[in-house]
Design a protein around this nucleic acid. Structure first.
Length: 328
DNA sequence: AATCGCATCAACCGCGCTGTC
DNA sequence: TGACAGCGCGGTTGATGCGAT
């Protein structure tokens, strides 16, 4: 039973996306919203597979993505969520609304794993023993339950000192989600590390392009698009054709990983506001809908409350988007 | 200045899940 | 109920940048 390729291999372009392609994709999604990826290549004329379009959108073009500069807090959260959930990056990413699963996965593989292996971590997060096949979810969840007390204890230890620096970001989350128009402002924007006022940068009502650009994060305005294309053309000329990754090529890949300088896609609202069009209304990330953002305090109570956490979070609705059903 | 090796990250691939007919 | 299509996820790869030699 060989599954046919998701798309016709012939004529399907691969490799790095060009700014032009990004532009086409963004424009299309702005108009139609994300989803129905199958139709995207056909309707946009992009010579890309639907999966590639979806990936490009969710991992790079989607508004509200913060890139680089993982804060210590995010780092610890990732470590402990990984200890709890294993390599279920999408689930982990749902607790870090500004981060993509791909980003978290990469960060884990390149930084955290090594850090922990070299003993640089707090030792609390052991490698998740196993990532059980999804076909046996019930089984692995039972195993997870077996480990959960250990992991919870470890997390408690790790989070305790964090209480002091507690989460401007996450605290804001707890309040910001109630604010109208916070819909796209997942996570409230900036991390403690990025001092720019990127908060709510992806909120349609609160992300004026000018403000956002002034603050640092890239906004997909006509001006920036033009700059982007110029930059791309320059690079193309310099490099002899390979366009590389827009934005990422210019800034994200500078090695500094400075999110505040990351160009489009970087930390930012991707809007077309300056073009006179409506700002994005679509946000595909809402794995955890804004109203269901889980503030750290909720995570803590979930993790720390031995008996009632599942009921608590479930009744609060905060874990609705979590991939587990918590049958126990 | 050139070369090599390593680190990083965007993108691809294959598989499983879910919804629809 | 089974087949099919579409989507999402996790693992892996390849291109690129950067530091060391």
């Amino acid at each position: 039973m060989v599954r046919p390729p998701c798309c016709d291999k012939e004529g399907v372009k691969k490799g790095p996306w060009t700014p032009e392609e990004d532009l086409v994709l963004v424009s299309y999604i702005q108009e139609h919203g994300p989803g129905n990826w199958r139709a995207v290549p056909a309707k946009t004329g992009l010579m890309r597979c639907s999966k590639s379009c979806r990936l490009r959108w969710t991992n790079y073009l989607r508004p509200g993505i913060k890139r680089g500069n993982f804060t210590e807090q995010e780092e610890k959260l990732i470590i402990h969520l990984q200890a709890l959930l294993g390599n279920r990056w999408a689930a982990i990413a749902s607790y870090l609304p500004e981060r993509t699963d791909n980003d978290i996965k990469n960060y884990w593989n390149t930084h955290l794993k090594r850090k922990l292996q070299s003993g640089g971590g707090d030792g609390a997060a052991k490698p998740p023993a196993h990532r059980p096949p999804s076909s046996s979810k019930g089984q692995w969840e039972r195993r997870l339950q077996t480990d959960i007390n250990l992991a919870r204890r470890a997390l408690r230890e790790a989070l305790t000192p964090l209480d002091d620096l507690k989460p401007p970001q996450l605290q804001r989350d707890a309040t910001a989600v109630d604010a109208p128009g916070a819909g796209l402002g997942v996570g409230g924007g900036d991390s403690p590390a990025s001092s720019s006022s990127g908060a709510s940068q992806c909120s349609p009502s609160s992300a004026p392009a000018a403000a956002a650009t002034a603050a640092g994060p890239y906004v997909l305005t006509t001006e920036n698009i033009s700059r982007m294309l110029d930059g791309w053309a320059g690079r193309k000329a310099a490099r002899g054709g390979s366009p590389g990754t827009p934005g990422g090529a210019e800034s994200a890949s500078t090695g500094s990983s400075d999110a505040s300088e990351v160009s489009y896609g970087g930390g930012a609202a991707v809007t077309l506001a300056a073009a006179g069009g409506p700002v994005f209304e679509f946000e595909t990330k809402p794995t955890v809908p804004p109203a269901q953002q889980m503030p750290l305090s909720a995570i803590e109570s979930w993790l720390f409350d031995d008996d009632s956490h599942f009921h608590h979070v479930q009744s609060a609705g905060v874990l609705d988007a979590a991939p587990m059903d918590y049958p126990f």
